[in-house]
């Protein structure tokens, strides 16, 4: 197992943790944060898979815009899940 594979393992684990976090979390702001973290890891994975175009798109859209519109939507509605 090469060191790169170890790195991928770390990233995948982080990603799954982030996904579970954002699903379980009752505070929706943190759920949005979790999706942002997923996108962060995802874009690194794309980068490792030699897809800089997609990594760039994921960074532009997943990390920033998507999170931002989630936060705006939370602001306009309710922050906590009952």
């Amino acid at each position: 197992m090469s060191w790169l594979a170890v790195l991928v393992l770390v990233l995948v684990v982080v990603q799954i943790i982030a996904a579970l976090f954002s699903v379980w979390q009752k505070d929706l702001l943190l759920a949005a944060l979790g999706t942002s973290a997923i996108s962060v890891v995802l874009s690194v994975l794309f980068y490792l898979l030699q897809a800089p175009d997609v990594a760039l798109t994921e960074a532009a859209i997943g990390v920033a815009l998507s999170t931002i519109i989630f936060v705006i939507a939370i602001k306009k509605t309710d922050r906590y899940e009952e």
């Binding site: 929706l28 997923i38 989630f70 899940e81 009952e82």
Partner: peptide
Amino acid sequence: KKNLLKIVVGLSI
């Protein structure tokens, strides 16, 4: 999940 925003989060995941 019962929360609308949570569902949207799920979709994006």
